[in-house]
């Protein structure tokens, strides 16, 4: 019996000062562009990276793991909620869709 394949993850959080969505990169920094995040394909590593992120409480708030898939330019969200977090609200041109 083979184990179900692990759905790749990225670590997401909100920036402490600005409050917007940020993602953890492979070099331990935080990016406002999910494509630049580290795509984690192994469950144990994901847990490790999450623990690291939670320890970054003076930079970010509320770190959590998000399902993602490899895209042309890097990790992409698979769920609509996380997709909205990469863009901003749909009723005004505010947030990441106009800031990046």
């Amino acid at each position: 019996m083979s184990r179900r394949p692990y759905t790749p993850k990225v670590v997401a959080a909100n920036d402490l000062l600005k409050g917007d969505a940020v993602w953890l990169t492979a070099n331990d920094s935080w990016t406002r562009n999910m494509c630049e995040a580290e795509l984690i394909e192994d469950e144990a590593i994901a847990e490790d990276r999450l623990i690291f992120a939670i320890g970054q409480g003076n930079i970010v708030v509320g770190a959590y793991l998000v399902d993602a898939r490899p895209g042309e330019n890097g990790p992409e969200p698979t769920h609509f909620r996380e997709a909205f977090r990469t863009r901003g609200p749909s009723n005004y041109p505010h947030g990441k869709q106009v800031e990046s």
């Binding site: 909100n14 402490l16 000062l17 600005k18 409050g19 917007d20 969505a21 409480g57 003076n58 708030v61 509320g62 909620r81 909205f84 977090r85 901003g88 609200p89 505010h94 947030g95 990441k96």
Partner: peptide, 28 residues
């Protein structure tokens, strides 16, 4: 104190909520 790191989020969150400050999808 939150910004300079002397308060953790666990300590700060109830204080900010007492003052109506939430953290949402894209911002506070």
């Amino acid at each position: 104190r939150r910004i300079d790191g002397s308060l953790t989020e666990d300590e700060f969150k109830p204080l900010r909520l007492m003052n109506g400050l939430y953290l949402q999808l894209h911002a506070y």
